[in-house]
Each structure stands twice: as C-alpha cells, then as structure tokens.
C-alpha cells in the first residue's frame, strides 16, 4: 500500500526551483534513504513532505490512512536547545498533541502510551530524568519515542546520526531496523552511507538538476549510485 505519492513535483523556495519533475512513492513498510550533496534540495524535500512548505508545482498525496500531520518527525539536532529544562516524559508526551483534543493536561491513555514507547526504545528508566542531562544517543531515543507518539505508521528522520559517535549511531540504526521490522515505515535523510548500504530498501538521491529514485540494488548500478559509493570509499 502506498502512503505518500509525489507526482511531477517542482520543489524550491521563494519561487526559485531547486528540483524539477520529481516523482516518488513511499510504500507501507518501506525503508527509504534520502541522500545527496549539500544544497541539492534535501531540506526543501523534508519541508515539503511535512507540509511546511507548498511544492511550486506538481502534487503530493497522503494515502493509505496516513494523514499529513501523522508523520513522526525527528528534526535535525541543531533545532533543539540543549539546555531546555524538561523531563523526558514531558518531551515524549508532547508528541501526541497532533491528536490531543483535551484542554488542561493529558489523558491516562496518552501517559500509558508514552510509557510504552519509552520502553520500546529502552528508555523507560529515564522517564523522570532531565532531558538536558542525557547523552546525545539517549536524547535521540527520547525524540524517537516522541515521534512514535505522533504516529504508528511513518517516521521521518533528518540526519539523526549527525551528532552521534559511530558506536551510538550503529545502536540507533539497529533500533530503526527493529522499528521497521515491526511494520513502521522509515524515511531518513542521511550523509552516512552505512544505513543506505545495509538497511534501506529504496533510495532517493537528489543531485543538482537530476535525481534517482528506485530500489537499492538498481541504485548501486546507476551512475549516481556508483559515484556516491566511490566518494564514500566503497568502490571496490
């Protein structure tokens, strides 16, 4: 089943097109990695999928019961203040506000779900800890729990490993693999070739003026794919 379908999209901002005639689909259970050089339009792509900016042309549709506000988003780490006073539970609960209808406080069901999502990512011990005192990897897990509060279908990560050391990044990728095998669709913008090599099923490579969209196998046979491997030192 298709969850997101973009047709003949023109993406850009302030009227300036960066990508033209881009078409892609995200199927349920997919693991899509979005790669590309700086300035190739990755962040505009993220904003468009999240409906934060309108495409300059073409259409983007949410299907299969996915509403456009139901994407669990994990923003780039630079967006969050590291010294913000907040407990882990407060962070996770804020993820369900897209479905929250009650004034004054959260329901018991929402609190239980927050506990479950923390447990799923091995962070339940830290529910009442201070978010600012956690390590980078732990903070990412908390933010992933928050993303799970917003959705059970699709998680969209923007450079989740950019501030993590290699060991912590591998742990994060293992968690994502686990979530993906439990049926959650993963979309991830990444500079890191390893998740693209190991876990991804589909690749979207944005390059200046052109793009590749297709399965991982076909990608590594394409020109863009071979060039990407070569740059990352995997050309043997």
């Amino acid at each position: 089943m298709t969850l997101i379908e973009g047709k003949d999209l023109t993406l850009g901002y302030e009227g300036q097109a960066i990508i033209t005639s881009l078409s892609f689909t995200v199927a349920e259970g997919d693991y899509l990695c979005i790669v590309g050089e700086n300035g190739s339009g990755k962040s505009t792509f993220v904003k468009t999928v999240l409906s934060l900016v309108e495409p300059l042309g073409g259409t983007i549709e949410y299907k299969g019961g996915l509403r456009k506000n139901e994407i669990g988003y994990l923003p780039q780490s630079s967006g969050i203040q590291r010294d913000f006073p907040s407990s882990v539970m407060e962070v996770v609960l804020s993820g369900c506000l897209n479905r929250h209808r009650k004034l004054f406080g959260y329901t018991r069901e929402e609190k239980e779900r927050a506990g479950e999502n923390l447990e799923r990512l091995g962070m339940d011990r830290y529910a009442h800890a201070s978010f600012q005192e956690l390590s980078g990897g732990q903070q990412q897990r908390v933010l992933l729990s928050r993303a799970l509060m917003a959705t059970e279908k699709l998680i969209f990560l923007d450079e989740p490993a950019s501030s993590l050391d290699p060991a912590t990044s591998s742990e994060l990728y293992a968690l994502l693999r686990l979530l993906n095998s439990s049926g959650i669709t993963i979309m991830m913008v990444t500079h890191d070739i390893h998740p693209a090599l190991n876990d991804a099923r589909t690749i979207l490579h944005l390059s200046h003026g052109r793009y590749f969209f297709g399965t991982k196998e076909r990608y590594f046979e394409s020109d863009l794919g071979r060039a990407f491997l070569k740059e990352a030192g995997h050309d043997h």
Binding site: S51, P75, G79, E90, L97, R146
Partner: peptide
C-alpha cells in the same frame, strides 16, 4: 521546546 516538530 521544538517549533519544527510542533509545526510538522
């Protein structure tokens, strides 16, 4: 806490 997540 996180305007971009809230917006999304």
């Amino acid at each position: 806490f996180d305007p971009s997540f809230a917006k999304a």
